[in-house]
C-alpha cells in the first residue's frame, strides 16, 4: 500500500448507510443468465457474481463514486466527509432489478482533506473530517438529505438508469409497477444487547430501516440484508397494490386476467426470504415475520390469487358444460 501506510488506518466503521431501489426489469419476459451477466457487467476488470441456489441471482461488481460533501444530520451539525460511495446492482430470477448505493464511516478521520490516494484504497468508506456524530448522521440520513448534502439515492438511481438504457431491454413490461426506495442506516449494537431492526413504511414507496448490528458486520453484508428486505417488501407492495384495485367478484374476465395472469407468470415464484444471508443477520428476519408478518401476508395474497384462478377455472368449466347441455 506504499505511501498510504504512513497514515494510520481509521478505526473500523461505526456507521453504514445505504439506499436500495427496487423495480421490475423493463422487459416483456425475464432475462436469462447470460443476459443478466451482460446487463450487470459494470466493470471490465471484475466478473458478475451469479448464484443458482436457492434461486437465480446475479450481482454486479461494485462501482465507486467519489464524493466530498456534507453528510445529512438530524441536528443540523455540519459534518464533511470525503471518500467513495459503493454501488452495485442485483438481478433476481432475471426479473427484479435492484441497485444499492452504500457507504461506511469510521468514528473519526484526519482534520483535513488527504490526497485522493488515501481515500481510493478504502473503497466504500467515507472518512469524516474530524469526529463523526454517528447517531445524528444515521437519523439525518434516514430522514432524507437536504440540498448540498450527500444524496446516495441519486447514485443508486443513476446506476438503475445506466442499466435501463441497455440495448437488450424492450421496455414492454407485462405489468406496471412502482419502484420502491429503501433507506437504511446501521450502527453497532450497544455492548450486551441483541441486534435489532426497525422497519418503517413511509409515503410514496419510501421505506426506512434502522439497524443495530454486531460489531464488525461487513457493510456489504448489511447491504445484502437490506436488498433482501427491499425485494420482499417490493413484492408485497406490488402484489398488494395490483389486487387492491381489481374487482375480483365481477364477471369482467379480461380485467381479472390482465392482473392475475402477469402476477402468476412473473412474481409469485419470487418469494424466498433469507436466500443468501449471513447467519448472524438472518435472525433479524424473525422479528419481521413476527410483526407485521411478511411471509404470512405473502401467503395470504398468493393463496387468494390461486383460489381466484381455481374458482374461475371451475366456473368456466361449468359454463361450458351448461352450454353443451343447452345445445342438445
Amino acid at each position: 500500500m506504499g505511501a498510504q501506510e504512513s497514515t494510520p488506518r481509521p478505526a473500523r466503521p461505526v456507521l453504514a448507510c445505504g439506499e436500495v431501489r427496487t423495480c421490475l426489469l423493463p422487459t416483456r419476459d425475464a432475462v436469462d443468465e447470460r443476459a443478466a451477466e451482460t446487463l450487470l457487467r459494470l466493470r471490465a476488470d471484475e466478473r458478475v457474481r451469479v448464484s443458482r441456489r436457492p434461486n437465480r441471482c446475479a450481482v454486479s461488481p461494485d462501482v465507486l463514486t467519489g464524493v466530498d460533501c456534507r453528510l445529512p444530520t438530524a441536528n443540523g451539525a455540519k459534518v464533511r466527509a470525503i471518500g467513495t460511495v459503493a454501488a452495485r446492482a442485483v438481478l433476481t430470477e432475471g426479473r427484479v432489478l435492484q441497485s444499492t448505493a452504500y457507504f461506511a464511516a469510521p468514528a473519526d478521520g484526519p482534520d483535513s482533506r488527504r490526497p485522493w490516494g488515501y481515500y481510493l484504497v478504502r473503497p466504500g468508506l467515507l472518512v469524516p473530517v474530524g469526529r463523526l456524530p454517528a447517531a445524528a448522521v444515521a437519523e439525518g440520513f434516514l430522514a432524507g438529505h437536504r440540498p448540498e448534502e450527500l444524496d446516495v439515492g441519486s447514485v443508486a438511481e443513476s446506476l438503475l438508469a445506466r442499466i435501463s438504457r441497455a440495448e437488450l431491454l424492450d421496455y414492454d413490461t407485462p405489468l406496471n409497477t412502482a419502484s420502491t426506495v429503501l433507506r437504511w442506516a446501521a450502527r453497532p449494537a450497544p455492548a450486551g444487547s441483541e441486534p435489532s431492526l426497525r422497519f418503517t413504511v413511509g409515503e410514496e414507496g419510501l421505506r426506512t430501516v434502522a439497524l443495530r448490528l454486531p460489531e464488525g458486520t461487513a457493510p456489504a453484508a448489511v447491504a445484502g440484508l437490506c436488498e433482501d428486505l427491499a425485494l420482499h417488501d417490493w413484492l408485497l407492495t406490488t402484489v398488494g397494490d395490483k389486487l387492491d384495485g381489481v374487482r375480483l367478484g365481477t364477471d369482467d374476465q379480461a380485467a381479472v386476467r390482465k392482473v392475475l395472469g402477469p402476477l402468476v407468470d412473473h412474481l409469485l415464484h419470487l418469494w424466498m426470504p433469507r436466500a443468501r444471508l449471513e447467519r448472524v443477520l438472518s435472525g433479524l428476519w424473525d422479528a419481521l415475520e413476527e410483526t407485521p408478518g411478511f411471509t404470512r401476508q405473502w401467503d395470504a395474497l398468493a393463496q387468494r390469487i390461486r383460489d381466484q384462478l381455481a374458482l374461475r377455472a371451475l366456473l368456466a368449466r361449468r359454463e361450458a358444460l351448461d352450454a353443451r347441455l343447452t345445445a342438445r
Binding site: C23, L24, P26, E157, S158, L160, A161, S164, R165, Y171, T173, N176, T177, A178, S179
Partner: peptide, 13 residues
C-alpha cells in the same frame, strides 16, 4: 430526459 421517461415507462401505460 431519457432516463426520466425510461423510469416512468416502468410505472405508467
Amino acid at each position: 430526459c431519457v432516463d426520466l421517461v425510461l423510469r416512468l415507462k416502468r410505472e405508467f401505460d
